[in-house]
Design a protein around this nucleic acid. Structure first.
Length: 782
DNA sequence: TAGTTTTAAGTTTTT
DNA sequence: CTTAAAACTA
């Protein structure tokens, strides 16, 4: 029928047209599930095979590491040589660029990337007396400013922050960052653009290097990223971007849908190809999703056809509360698996905020449903992990003020903030090197000896690295193209009996870089410090540190390897949290239910999807209107179009927030969905869609005013103590937990609640009238 | 200054 | 409810 080789034969005409397109810039408007990844990967392979393009001169940019990895895998399946193409996220490309060319912007190649928390820490040293919330807002605004490519002196800055002093703060921040020699996320895009603009020679080199540039998820590009693309494209460069305006969900991060709308203007002579055949979802699912996003005004508009045809209607379950919501999900999933209609991994539970995952996790754990939580960054936000990383960062860059502040006095060495301030200030004259300055400075005796202790740790670590550098001559000139997160099997589960407190094991080192890291972390006393804090959490913290150490074993034992390790952690935090995750519900992470935020689902697909929390205030979130409301609709669209076969929606009548139960209304999205493609289960008779609220909602509407969180005065606390027969400070003994003391006695609807902290660090609470018997009062108060 | 206790505050979404 | 910041004490 045709002369196309098989890998092209399998494409539909539009897809093939997109793959074979050359000569002019190309914009591919690709609806959800229309096979855009297939087009990009095929196009890469095609260029290599049919056009003799050197794989190394192909650059494909995505927004997530997950997407980059998937693209690499799939392209290689078509042609092995595609593995040599550069497939990266914008940010990792930026980092790669700056390691090589950063010196042109005064940047040492050993820079460390600051995450948002580090930025806030640095900023709070600049905005000394401001409350934390204000500092955070400022950090956010600086980040936005960089997304829009605004310098501190840019007049347009007022669009982001109208306060006069913002300009100053931004300028000071930039200056401090330059002195420290590190970069933030925004710099990874902005600085390369600046270099490319100011150094024509470099620009020429890069335009020569990359003859084909492709960008995925183009609707999520911000202004700075657009500029970077523009700078990389020379007259000869073939540029192709793929996107879908209906799936733009990162406005809050500076994404500009305008980029995609204006592409034909910015890249003159561009062709546009539309992919409107959806191969993923059934017709009713697609219709339901479209009917919501159709309510948006600001869109190009397109008609997606479901190639799959008919299927079961999406189901809306209207439920009383979160507990029912979780068990609804559990039952649906269990039933389908037991009847062998589906596997665990066919299912995904979607929610708006990460916090919502908790309810599902606890129930799934109890019912033995294997699950994995995608995304939540918990692991790297843990104190002990941040401590260890700060220590390692400081080894790489002794000018890193933020890292220094974090670890110098941990464990306590008598070096307080006053001393630290002094050192930082003095270091300004020494080129910012905190080590050098610290050695020379005159200090009070206590601070002196403490600082020396810390320096001893650093020295030992340095010589460890020096030795490693000498022994393993590993230049790692080119980054590995298959840079992925560590394969699961390599990270062995750390020891320790679950749940029970037992003697802590030492950190165990594996191979590679982990040898050094283990030694350094042990030396530093960080592990020891956390061990002394609280015995119960200490166990977990040690396990976490062990995880970190394990992850290091994949890197070379050298400074270079350490740098790579740190960079990888900053740029890709997606490795899931094994310490907490479904630890023992099942051994096989490949066969478990996915718990995930709507945002994180982009680019993924599942046979069966449950979208949860469809309530006003939750999804869409509070205070969304106008453009932001349109973004929420797009988010709904993204979520719904992940489903291949079956789609479920849940909405609760009441929801617990901040520990209080509040009535909630059904999401407006439920009203916007075309009624012909929705089946309502459960309490359908309660007037869904008529604006009338279901009965339990009306009854339980004792509404907010009566809940006063601060009602209990110390006087009332006294009453509670009398009623309970327990008072604060009372020592006690419990058969299972041992000795402890009463921390707090509080009144509740069910009677007085006594909170106990045991000497092991564990905390429990009990109702005095019911469970009081298990607690034996002991004589000596504290 | 270090460690503890009391009080306030908060939940988007992510590279 | 959980966590972070402020306030207090030794």
């Amino acid at each position: 029928m045709s002369d196309y080789p098989t890998y092209l034969e399998v494409l539909n005409p539009e897809q093939r047209q997109a793959v074979l397109h050359t000569g002019k810039p190309l914009l591919i408007l690709a609806g959800a599930g229309s096979g855009k990844t297939r087009v990009i990967t095929t196009k890469i392979a095609w260029f290599i095979r049919e056009r003799g393009v050197d794989p190394r001169s192909i650059l494909a940019v995505t927004f997530t590491n997950k997407a980059a990895r998937e693209m690499a895998t799939r392209a290689r399946q078509i042609d092995e040589r595609a593995g040599d193409a550069m497939l990266r996220t914008f940010h990792s490309f930026g980092a790669w660029f700056l390691r090589r060319n950063g010196s042109l912007a005064g940047l040492d190649s050993g820079f460390v990337i600051y995450d948002d928390d580090d930025v806030v820490s640095l900023l709070s040293t600049i905005m000394e007396n401001s409350p934390k919330a204000e500092v955070k807002e400022c950090a956010y605004n600086i980040s936005r400013a960089k997304d829009y490519f605004f310098d501190p002196d840019d007049p347009q800055l007022i669009k982001i922050d109208t306060r006069k002093k913002f300009r100053e703060i931004y300028a000071r921040y930039e200056q401090r960052m330059a002195e420290i020699g590190n970069v933030d996320f925004g710099d990874l895009i902005k600085k390369p653009v600046e270099i490319l603009r100011s150094q024509p020679e470099v620009a020429r080199r890069f335009r020569e290097r990359f003859s084909v540039i492709m960008v995925d998820e183009y609707q999520d590009a911000n202004v700075a990223q657009f500029r970077l693309l523009k700078e990389l494209c020379g007259a000869e460069t073939y540029v192709c971007v793929v996107g879908d305006d209906d799936q733009s969900i990162y406005r809050f991060r500076g994404a500009e849908v305008k980029n995609i709308l204006e592409f034909p203007d910015r890249f003159s002579g561009a062709d546009i190809i539309r992919l409107e055949r959806n191969y993923r979802s059934t017709a009713p699912i697609l219709k339901a999703a479209s009917s919501v996003v159709n309510c948006n005004n600001d869109r190009l508009g397109k008609t997606l056809r479901a190639e799959k045809g008919d299927g079961p209607l999406p189901v809306l379950a209207y439920l009383p509360d979160q507990e029912h919501e979780a068990s609804f999900c559990a039952e649906k999933i269990e039933k389908s698996v037991k009847s062998e209609k589906a596997k665990w991994s066919d299912w995904a539970v979607l929610y708006r905020t990460n916090a919502q995952s908790l309810g599902f996790e606890t129930l799934f754990l109890r019912r033995g449903i294997p699950y994995r939580v995608v995304g939540s960054l918990k692991f790297y936000e843990r104190e002990e992990i941040k401590d260890a990383l700060a220590l390692l960062s400081f080894l790489i860059n002794p000018r890193d003020e933020v890292a220094f502040r974090r670890v110098v006095n941990k464990p306590t060495r008598g070096v307080g903030p006053v001393t630290v301030d002094k050192i930082v200030e003095a270091s300004a004259n020494e080129g910012g090197d905190l080590l050098k300055t610290g050695y020379k400075m005159e200090l009070a005796a206590k601070a002196r000896s403490g600082l020396n202790e810390f320096f001893k740790v650093i020295e030992n670590a340095q010589s460890l690295l020096d030795k490693a550098d000498g022994a393993v001559a590993e230049p790692t000139a080119e980054p590995r193209s298959d840079e992925g997160s560590p394969p699961d099997n390599k990270v062995k589960k750390s020891g320790g009996k679950k749940g029970k407190t037992k003697k802590h094991e030492e950190l165990v080192s594996g191979e590679g870089l982990s040898v050094c890291v283990t030694q350094i972390v042990k030396d530093s006393g960080i592990a020891e410090y956390h061990r002394t804090q609280d015995e119960v959490t200490a166990n977990q913290r040690l396990n976490n540190l062990q995880e970190l150490v394990n992850a290091a074993s994949l890197y070379a034992q050298s400074r270079e390897g350490l740098l790579e390790f740190l960079e990888h952690i900053e740029l890709d935090r997606s490795i899931d949290d094994r310490a907490n995750a479904s630890a023992d519900t099942s051994g096989d992470p490949e066969n478990s239910v996915t718990l995930i935020t709507f945002h994180n689902t982009k680019g993924l697909e599942f046979r069966r999807v449950i979208m949860t929390g469809l309530e006003q205030g939750v999804f869409p979130r509070d205070g969304k209107n106008g453009e932001e409301m349109e973004e929420e609709r797009r988010l709904f669209y993204v979520g719904a179009t992940r489903a291949m076969d079956e789609l479920y929606l849940t909405s609760c009548a009441v929801r617990r927030m901040y520990g209080r139960t509040m009535p909630s209304n059904p999401s407006v999205f439920l009203r916007e969905i075309d009624r012909s493609c929705l089946r309502i289960t459960g309490e359908k008779s309660y007037g869904y869609g008529t604006g009338q609220r279901p009965p339990w909602e009306q009854n339980s509407d004792t509404s907010g005013a009566t809940y006063s969180r601060y009602a209990q005065t110390s006087q009332r606390e006294n009453d509670a103590e009398k009623k309970a027969g327990w008072r604060r400070g009372q020592r006690l003994f419990h058969d299972d937990h041992g000795y402890g003391a009463v921390m707090e006695v509080r009144d509740s609807e069910d009677g007085p609640i006594v909170r106990v902290r045991f000497d092991t660090g564990r905390e429990t609470r009990f109702l005095s009238e019911h469970q009081g018997r298990a607690y034996e009062k002991m004589g000596d108060d504290v």
